[in-house]
Amino acid sequence: MIDIGLLSLGPMRGSLRNRRESRLPRSLSDWESAFVAGQDGDRHAYRAFLEAAEAHLKRFFARKAPPADAADLVQDVLIALHTKRASYDPAYPLMPWVNTIAKYKWIDWLRKTHRVTHVELDDTYGDPGTPQQPAAGHAVGMLLNNLPRRQAEAIRLVKLQGMTIAEASAVSGQSESLVKVNIHRGLKKLSAFVYDEGEAI
């Protein structure tokens, strides 16, 4: 709780009970009063509003973004609230506006961070005939160790050794449809694995 003389700004919490409480006129008017005073140039009240808003926004972004990005998002929203503070009309509730700005900042962040280029694995990748293969083939072999044996075997036979589905079926003892399914599932897992590793880096 942040006390500023008669004002007592309670941060909004996520539980249903507190969400109900936050809709009470008393609580809303505290936030609004501090912000409106800030619009009129009262720096003391404005700081109290910003601190309360910062705490609210930290909770808002806590489960929506990694900590470093969440901190950036909180700052972005605080700056947006500040630069656009003239646009707020005290006759209307403040929190829908604050939350809308936070929501759209989060959407912008999602768009930015999830713009990932997907590159198809080409059929010659891992082919021992190509000059750069020793390292690449070794890397693929390491990746295949993360897959179940039958999926790794299907990929190794068809995608690395260049066998047909029928030949791979005869060699591995899996049915042709099972070879196809195992290749599909294995490549999907490999792709997810590579993506997760990249994210971790």
């Binding site: 800030g38 619009q39 009129d40 140039g41 009262d42 720096r43 404005y46 700081r47 910003l50 601190e51 910062e54 901190a71 909180v74 700052q75 605080l78 700056i79 500040h82 503070r85 003239a86 646009s87 707020y88 009309d89 005290p90």
Partner: peptide, 21 residues
Amino acid sequence: MSNDLLDKLVADAAPVRRANA
């Protein structure tokens, strides 16, 4: 983290003219 930012925003909190009808 945000303390510097809050200080700057508060320092910049001059009175504003509100958008109205």
